[in-house]
Simulated scan of single mutants.
Amino acid sequence: MALRATVYKAELHVADNDRAYYGTHAVTVARHPSETDERLMVRLLAYALWVEADERLVFTRGLSDTDEPDLWNLDLTGAVRQWIEVGLPDERRLLKACGRAEQVIVLAYGRSADVWWSGVRGKLERAGNLQVHVLDAEATRDLAALAERTMSLSVNITDRTAWVSCDRGDVSLDVRSLREAA
């Protein structure tokens, strides 16, 4: 018998001072059985970092579907505006995504993120629409401790630092840019 996804509901209060974006979003996220709380919370953080007023940024089937990213923003014609990957994706997957989307964003995390980047960096040089950002491994572990099935998170973003807070505590995460789009 296959394990089923666990549903998480989050109310995100986003105050992004870097982009002058402020909004509240009620989101429902399915956590794949093989997914950790850390990855789930990084996906929620990615949503807060790149959500826009048009609210077309949505969570996809992610780990359940290899042809979709963790999040994407589609225009009214169905074309992919933003393709957002969380974790340490394969360079072939990223190059394919760069051909399909206007903008591809990677939010890398984990102890081996810098090693991953040094291994794929040269292979991704021609991808002009690719951005790569990394989070500190200790901070994402602390972020995972805030996970609850129903949660209300306040995310304040200033100078590429995200402060995430809720009743269970708060975490500060530096979003370090490894590569900006050309």
Rank of each mutant, 00 (worst) to 15 (best):
M1E: 05
A2Q: 13
L3P: 03
A5Q: 05
A5R: 08
A10N: 06
E11C: 11
E11N: 10
H13D: 05
V14H: 07
D18Q: 02
D18V: 00
R19A: 14
R19D: 04
R19T: 09
A20T: 11
A20D: 14
G23N: 07
A26R: 11
A26Q: 06
V27A: 09
T28E: 12
V29T: 02
H32F: 06
P33G: 11
E35S: 10
E38C: 11
R43C: 03
L44H: 10
Y47N: 02
Y47L: 13
A48N: 01
L49G: 00
L49C: 09
L49M: 10
L49A: 02
E52W: 07
A53R: 06
A53M: 01
D54F: 02
E55N: 13
V58K: 15
F59R: 06
T60M: 10
G62E: 10
L63T: 00
L63D: 10
S64D: 14
D65I: 03
T66R: 14
T66H: 11
D67E: 13
D70F: 06
D70T: 04
L71T: 01
L71C: 02
L71W: 08
W72T: 03
W72D: 04
N73G: 02
L76R: 08
L76W: 01
T77W: 04
T77H: 11
V80D: 04
V80T: 15
Q82C: 04
Q82G: 05
Q82M: 15
Q82A: 15
W83L: 09
W83I: 02
W83K: 04
I84D: 08
I84H: 03
E85Y: 11
V86P: 10
G87N: 08
L88V: 03
L88M: 11
L88G: 06
D90F: 01
E91W: 10
L95T: 13
K96S: 13
C98H: 08
G99R: 08
A101W: 12
Q103M: 05
V104K: 09
V106F: 07
A113P: 03
W116G: 03
W117Y: 12
S118G: 02
S118K: 15
S118R: 15
S118H: 12
G122P: 01
E125Y: 03
R126K: 09
A127W: 04
G128R: 12
G128D: 13
Q131N: 12
V132H: 10
V134E: 02
V134K: 13
V134G: 00
E138L: 11
E138V: 09
A139G: 05
A139Y: 01
D142C: 09
L143E: 03
A145W: 06
L146R: 05
E148R: 15
E148C: 08
R149F: 05
M151A: 12
S152G: 07
S154L: 10
V155I: 14
N156I: 14
T158R: 12
T158H: 04
R160E: 03
R160P: 02
T161F: 09
A162R: 04
V164S: 00
D167R: 13
D167L: 10
G169P: 06
D170A: 13
D174W: 00
V175P: 03
S177I: 08
S177N: 07
R179I: 06
E180Y: 12
